[in-house]
């Protein structure tokens, strides 16, 4: 229990970020027209690709003789990049089509 309370105090900024982000997410999506649901889902999908940063940190910290960590980290970097790059490119392709109509 003590540890949990300590952890809350140490990480209070992060907890504030979490709470405010939850409301922000609800607020931002709340009034979206259904036309944009698919691109929005795809865009959000690209944004959670931010997990790639964790993969980069894992990779960069791995000792150069710890092959298991290196290989898993390497895989994580590839998968994360796929998520980010693929996500943004797919979203852009969808939205490109909306732009043309006058």
């Amino acid at each position: 229990m003590e540890e949990l309370l300590n952890w809350f105090t140490i990480h209070q900024q992060m907890i504030y970020i979490v709470i405010l982000s939850i409301f922000l997410g609800i607020e931002v999506i709340g009034r979206v027209p259904s036309v944009l649901h698919t691109p929005l889902m795809s865009g959000a999908n690209a944004i959670h690709g931010v997990v790639i940063i964790g993969a980069i940190i894992v990779m960069g910290k791995a000792e150069s003789d710890n092959y298991l960590a290196l290989i898993l980290g390497f895989l994580a970097v590839i998968l994360g990049t796929l998520n980010v790059v693929g996500g943004f490119v797919v979203t852009d392709r969808m939205l490109e089509m909306f732009k043309k109509k006058k």
Binding site: I17, L24, G25, I26, V28, G30, H37, L40, I47, H48
Partner: peptide, 14 residues
């Protein structure tokens, strides 16, 4: 954290 939670809450609402 921001990216993840934003998508988490926005995705839930969606």
């Amino acid at each position: 954290l921001t990216g993840g939670i934003l998508v988490g809450s926005a995705g839930t609402i969606l």
